[in-house]
Structures are given as C-alpha cells and as structure tokens.
Simulated scan of single mutants.
Amino acid sequence: MNPIMVAVRAGLFRGRTELRNSFTNAQDLWTYFFPTVILLVVMFFMRDATVPGTGFSLGARTLPGTLGMGLVFSGLLGVGGQLTVEREDGTLLRAKAIPNGMLGYLIGKIVAIAGMAVIGLLLQLIPAMFFLDGLHLGLGNWLTLLLVLVVGLVATLPLGAVLGAVFDNPRNMGLISLPVMGAVAISGIFYPINGLPGWVQGIAEALPIYWLGLGMRSALLPDNMAAVELGHSWRHLETFGMLGLWAALGLVLAPIVLRRMARRESGSSVAARREKAMQRIS
C-alpha cells in the first residue's frame, strides 16, 4: 500500500481513538460541558432582550456568532495548544521517528479536534433551540450550517497547527489567546459592528472570526436580520471567499512550518524543555 495512504489511515484511526477517549476523560468532559452550560445560561437570560430597533431576540441573534467563535477557539487554540504540549512531552518526536508519522499525527489531531468542535456546537445549539425564539432550522439552514462548519474548520485548524509549531512552550499560548480575544471584541459576535470606526470594521473583515460568525448567522437567522449586518446582506460569496483564502493560506503554510519544526526536534531538545518545565514546577 502507498506509504502516504498508510499514514492517512493511521491518522484517521488515531483521530477516532482520541475522540472516543475524550468521552471518558474528565478534563475533556469539562471542556465539553462547562462552556456549554455558561453559554446556555447567558443565552437564557438574554432571550427576552431585543436587538436595538427590532423585536428580535438578542439571545437568538448572539447564539450563532458564539458558535462561530467556538469554532475559531477550537481551530486556533485547540490544535495549537495540544501541539505545543505534545511537542514538549516528546509525542511529536516519536511521531517523527515513524515514516510519514508527522502526516499521520496531523491528520489524527485535526480529526479529533474537529470532532470535539462539532460535538461542542451541537451541545450548545440543540438545547438553545427549545428556549430561543427566532432561530430558523429548516433543511436549507442545516445545509448552510454544515457548509459553514466545514469551511470554517478547514480555515482555522491548519492555522492552529502553524501557531502550535511556532510556539514551543505551552505557557506562551497566552500570546495567541489575547489577540484572539481582541478579534472577538471587534468581530460582531456579541453585537453588530456597524457603529465601530471604519478602520476597525476593516480589521474585523480581514479576520476569519467575523466571517464565521456571519456565516453562522446567515444559516440560523431569518433573512430580515441581515438588515443589521454590514452591507445589509449575508454576503455569502464574500464569506466563503474569505474563509477559502484563510483555508488556502493555512493549508500551504502548515506542511512547511511543521516540516521545519520536525527537523529541529531531537531527544536533546525534548529533554531540555522537560528540564525547564521541571525547574518551573520546583
């Protein structure tokens, strides 16, 4: 069998195994349910508030954007964080020792994180359907949601791998978290960005989190809610175009950066990072 196909099959098996094991790991279960409970409580108390100038539920308007935000966090911080941890503990070095092991490792990690992201989204969306008025969930809406979900994950997961390869210390992931939170603040997740300065809107439109939020809103909200968006439209072509550009960028950069990172990995570098970690603990 083709060695590449062997690595792909191994990666798919690894990803399914990690995803299945996440249902028996207390930390992973906490990751599933704690954000879900917090989000649903917030949405419940927002259900009777309305979007200014309309009678539409502010909670229903906010929920799709927060789902998009969750995908960004899973793609950028989930993959990046696990990559830095497993780089420090030697997992990547062991993967490097296997023919095409890095390819299998990356595929496995993407499958596992993508599966966790989808499960987290459904855990939030399905209960919210019962107490938020205004969500549209016909067949066309589910198809649009699926398409946005797939394109959004492809746009963010490879970028998360790039960030994880650049930062070799899990404690440096805060350098990624802060800019991501800043992007959330200006990307229309919790409120329309029409009132922000034009240059801030331009920055938001250059980032994938804005387009993921917009795509989610276009899938789950009625068409008349596009009136509060920039351009008074769901801008489907721009949404998939921008997310496609980010996906292409990540897919080009990720293999290059990961190969360079793998070449630098050695037993001595892993031992040095482990010693530094032990010194910090002591």
Rank of each mutant, 00 (worst) to 15 (best):
F56T: 02
A114D: 02
M46R: 13
Y32R: 00
V118F: 05
R61D: 02
T91D: 13
I113H: 15
G70P: 02
L58C: 08
G108E: 09
L122S: 05
I119Y: 08
I107A: 15
G75Q: 05
G108P: 07
L40T: 09
L77K: 03
D89P: 07
L39H: 05
G90H: 01
G70W: 04
G80M: 09
P52A: 10
M69L: 11
F73H: 01
G80H: 05
K96W: 11
A97G: 08
I110H: 15
W30F: 01
M116E: 04
M102P: 14
I38P: 03
L106N: 05
G70D: 00
V37I: 11
F56V: 06
G53N: 03
I126M: 01
V42T: 09
T36W: 07
Q124L: 15
E86T: 03
Y32A: 00
L125N: 09
M46Y: 14
T36G: 13
W30N: 01
L93E: 11
L106S: 05
M116L: 10
A114T: 06
V51I: 00
V118M: 13
L76K: 02
V79Q: 11
G53T: 00
T66M: 14
A112I: 04
M102W: 03
P52I: 05
K109P: 10
W30G: 00
M69D: 01
L83N: 05
G120Q: 09
I113S: 13
L76Q: 04
I113R: 15
N100R: 15
L83G: 00
R87K: 06
R94T: 13
G78Q: 13
A95L: 01
A95H: 00
G81Y: 09
M43D: 05
G81A: 15
G104A: 14
T84Q: 11
G120A: 08
M102N: 05
G75W: 12
L76T: 11
G53V: 00
V51T: 01
R47I: 06
L76M: 12
G53A: 03
P99D: 15
G101C: 13
Q82M: 13
L93K: 02
F44R: 03
L77W: 00
